[in-house]
Amino acid sequence: MSAPHSGYRLLDIPFGAGPLADEVLLTPAIQEPVACLWRTAPGLVVPRTYAARPEFAAVRADFAARGCPIHVRQSGGGVVPQGPGILNLSLAQVFAGRPLDHAEALYRHLCALISDALAVFGIEARAQPVEGSFCDGRYNLAVPSPDRKIAGTAQVWRRIPGHAPDRHVGLVHALILAQGDPAELTARANALEAALGSSRRYDADRITTLDRLLPPDEHPDFPSALEARLQETLRARSPLPTTAPARPRPEP
């Protein structure tokens, strides 16, 4: 008898499913750890805090009329672009206990998984903030010398109906800048901030796309090769333990 599968079950998400497609993982994750790699059409995605602004509805309609729809996601963070050249990776599984006890480990797990896949292509990446990049956070993935963001991450948690109150599904997402023009991606995010009357602006020099880190004659099919490598890693990598490690007792 073959050994039980220990990695993630990969789910297919059609291209037309949209930039909130990974939220469909929340239900199947109740049964087993699941993951998906997906792409979507051009647009912008924002957290719910943006949707609460008085100007948001009018700005959203204007951007949609110009071919740049704005979608509101459940996870936190800031504004991010979607579209050609951007690869999304999402993981979801059940945890016992408080989400706060698992959140950091889940971020580190996702960042390590992507970093391991990138190492095959000779790209060194590490988790860190990159001031000036859009949707900056402690668990960006960045390349050094100089530090530039190549992926951003976010989480969402849901209590499981009909289960113990401490049972939650944790979903973590990475937006990976595989290809594209950093100036154009940043300009889209800046245009939204300006339209909403925000003084926040992002610097295109604080991000880069992965294809720019490779010699032109190497890995001509890089985005597809990266996706294949990530699929292999997901199938082989064990999900996190359901229960968080016990906290040390304070000294008497």
Rank of each mutant, 00 (worst) to 15 (best):
L226P: 05
G162D: 03
A164K: 12
L214N: 09
W157E: 00
A183W: 02
P146G: 02
D116C: 07
R237L: 05
C135L: 14
G137Q: 05
Y202F: 13
R148N: 02
S238G: 00
T209G: 12
N140Y: 02
R148T: 12
A228P: 02
E232S: 10
Y202H: 15
E124V: 13
A225G: 01
S198D: 10
Q179Y: 09
T209L: 13
V120T: 02
V143R: 11
L171D: 00
T186R: 10
P161T: 02
V120Q: 01
L171H: 01
A204F: 05
D136R: 12
D181K: 10
A142D: 00
V120R: 08
A225M: 09
S199A: 14
Q231G: 15
D166N: 15
V156L: 01
G180V: 14
K149N: 07
P161W: 05
Q231P: 03
L192R: 11
G132L: 15
R158D: 00
D181M: 11
E227N: 06
G152S: 08
Y107W: 06
R148W: 01
G132A: 15
G170P: 09
A225W: 00
D166T: 15
L177W: 03
V130W: 06
F121V: 06
Y107F: 15
L106W: 13
A178N: 01
V156T: 10
D181F: 08
P239A: 07
H163N: 02
R200A: 14
L196I: 04
Q128C: 11
D203S: 10
L113C: 10
D221E: 12
G170T: 06
D166H: 15
I150M: 09
P223D: 12
T233C: 06
G152T: 10
R237Q: 09
A195T: 03
G132F: 14
D101Y: 01
E104H: 05
F121A: 03
R229Y: 01
T209W: 09
D205S: 14
A103G: 03
H173Q: 05
L213E: 03
L113E: 06
Y139G: 00
L226Y: 06
A225S: 09
I207D: 04
E232P: 00
T208I: 10
R201Q: 09
P144M: 01
E124Y: 03
S133D: 09
L171Y: 01
E227S: 13
R108F: 04
